[in-house]
Each structure stands twice: as C-alpha cells, then as structure tokens.
C-alpha cells in the first residue's frame, strides 16, 4: 500500500500534478474564485510522475494509512477583466523569478494571460 503524502503548506496550487496524472487520480477544479485540488489517500499505479512534476516538492510517498486530502486555494482576479486566473501562491512563486529576469516587478503582474495579450496588442497598435 502506497500512500500520497502532500505537504499542504508547500503546495502553490499549480496544475502540474493534476495535468501530469494520466489516470486522473489527482483532480483540479476551478469554481468561481476557488481552486480545489483533491489528492487520493493512496495510489496503486506504478508511477511517480506527480512527485517528479511538483515544482515545490510538496508530494512524497509514504507507507502509513493515508487519508484523502483536499486543498483549497483562492484565485486572484485579473485586475482588468476580473476573471480569476491564478492562485496567490502561484504568483508569489512566479513573480520573484520574473522580476529577476525583467529587473523589477512588471506592471502587468495583475493581468490574466488574455489581458496581457490584449495589452501587448494595444502597445503595438500605438504605431498606427
């Protein structure tokens, strides 16, 4: 019996484990501004994809009698269109890295990808 031990405080609520899990044991659902990730207590598959996929190393395998775990995250709304697009934790994970490359926090950090596309297009459209 192999159980899944998820360190809730390390999880940033990204899609990695749920996307990579081919048999769909780990599920991710976005409803309104809430993201729910549900982990099963155990997993019989001969696979460690989720463990390797996790960006923060929050997943580990254990032997004990595990129990199902459900983590909830708040999705922050896009500052332009208001659509919830990422968890606070994800942005906290991403922003320092992005800031390192861009030499400072970008002013578009609160925008969802669609609105960033829109803003980039507006920037280009200035030429006309």
């Amino acid at each position: 019996m192999r159980t899944l031990e998820v360190a809730g405080e390390k999880c940033i609520g990204c899609r990695a484990c749920s996307s990579i899990c081919a048999p769909l044991h780990i599920s991710l659902t976005d409803v309104g501004n809430r993201r729910t990730i549900a982990f099963p207590a155990s997993c019989e598959e001969d696979c460690d994809l989720c463990l390797r996929a996790c960006p923060t190393g929050a997943i580990a395998f254990g032997a004990g009698p595990g129990k199902p775990l459900t983590l909830e995250f708040e999705l922050i709304p896009c500052s332009k269109c208001g659509k919830p697009f990422a968890t606070r934790e994800e942005m906290a994970f991403v922003l320092p890295k992005v800031s390192k490359v861009l030499g400072g926090e970008p002013d578009w950090k609160g925008l969802c990808p669609e609105c960033r596309r829109e803003e980039s297009a507006s920037g280009l459209r200035v030429a006309i």
Binding site: R15, S19, F85, A86, E90, V94, R116, R117, E118, S120
Partner: peptide, 16 residues
C-alpha cells in the same frame, strides 16, 4: 508538466 507557471510569467500572454 502543464503547471501553467510559464503562462503566468509571459509578459505577452503568448503561451496557451
């Protein structure tokens, strides 16, 4: 892995 972090990092929204 489909983690969507690159989507959140891209300044142009050019990753889907």
């Amino acid at each position: 892995t489909g983690c969507e972090l690159c989507l959140l990092a891209c300044p142009f929204g050019a990753i889907g």
